[in-house]
């Protein structure tokens, strides 16, 4: 009844930790688990196979039509396919987060001596990695149909960096929903709802001035248009700050806004 706790341990058992291990350690362990998931068969289908499949479908449907209008399919549509892939990455990461919430893993983490910042950082780091993976896959596929980086290595790096940052911004938005939503079964429907309008009502497939007059302001002001236009600019010969700036402004604004909403939502779940 009065044994000192923890000392009379089973022989092979390691000593009790007694205190937390630290941010870097926690980040590494949490990152490893999520990375294993994202490199699993299911994870790679979502980040690589699915975007390539969509790419092939878009090529078969739009290439001839765009060609007839004098638009280079590879250059015009590759950034669109990429943005769509990044949307799927963001939706997938929120689904994983919701799975951790409903399975109880999230609660177990919250009752473990884990640095809470490590939980968010590991989530975003894996999202960034998945965004990078999708970007490489889509750019390589784009190369087969005429996509090129005209401004050399720096602009290409900027392109990839921009794409990764956009994945993080979107994932912050979807994470907020995954943390806020009470009915997690509705998550998939809620996340897929805005995806199609956002993508179609943008300059992704059709230039803004070809939309009906009343839709043109919406299309021009869309964050997705801004991002796709910036990606196109970063890969084209006519790279100007003016073409990148609206997308960049959206990116900064979205990251700021959704960092705040995610942090608030996380606190609400973690500390009640």
């Amino acid at each position: 009844m009065s044994t000192t706790p923890g000392v009379a341990a089973v022989p092979a058992a390691p000593a009790p930790p007694g205190r937390p291990a630290g941010l870097q350690h926690d980040f590494q362990v949490l990152f490893d688990r999520l990375r294993t998931r994202s490199f699993s068969r299911g994870g790679l289908v979502a980040t690589v196979v699915q975007p390539l499949l969509f790419f092939a479908i878009f090529y078969c449907t739009f290439a001839t039509m765009l060609d007839a209008r004098g638009i280079d399919f590879g250059r015009f549509v590759t950034p669109t396919v990429l943005v769509q892939a990044l949307m799927f990455v963001a939706i997938g990461s929120a689904t994983d987060l919701a799975a951790d919430r409903s399975s109880g893993v999230f609660s177990r983490l919250l009752t473990s001596p884990v640095d809470m910042r490590a939980m968010s950082l590991a989530h975003l780091a894996v999202v960034a990695l998945q965004g990078l993976l999708s970007s490489v896959a889509v750019v390589l596929a784009g190369h087969l149909v005429g996509f090129r980086f005209d401004q050399g290595v720096l602009a290409a790096l900027g392109f990839v960096l921009f794409a990764v940052a956009f994945t993080v911004a979107l994932s912050l938005a979807t994470a907020t929903i995954a943390l806020r939503l009470k009915n997690l079964e509705a998550l998939s429907a809620v996340l897929h709802l805005p995806y199609l309008p956002l993508l179609v009502l943008s300059t992704g497939f059709v230039e803004a001035d070809l939309f009906p007059g009343w839709l043109q302001p919406i299309v021009a002001a869309s964050p997705v248009s801004g991002v796709i236009d910036a990606l196109r600019a970063l890969s084209s010969a006519e790279l100007t700050w003016g073409a990148v700036l609206p997308g960049l402004a959206w990116l900064v604004g979205l990251v700021a806004l959704f960092s705040w909403t995610t942090t608030t939502a996380f606190r609400k779940v973690a500390v009640r």
Binding site: D100, G104, R108, T111
Partner: peptide, 21 residues
């Protein structure tokens, strides 16, 4: 809180496991 967490092992009402691994 983190010192308390480091010293308590918890098993809740439902198995809290990563189902994908």
């Amino acid at each position: 809180p983190s010192l308390v967490r480091a010293n308590i092992a918890v098993t809740g009402q439902f198995a809290a496991l990563d189902e994908q691994i």
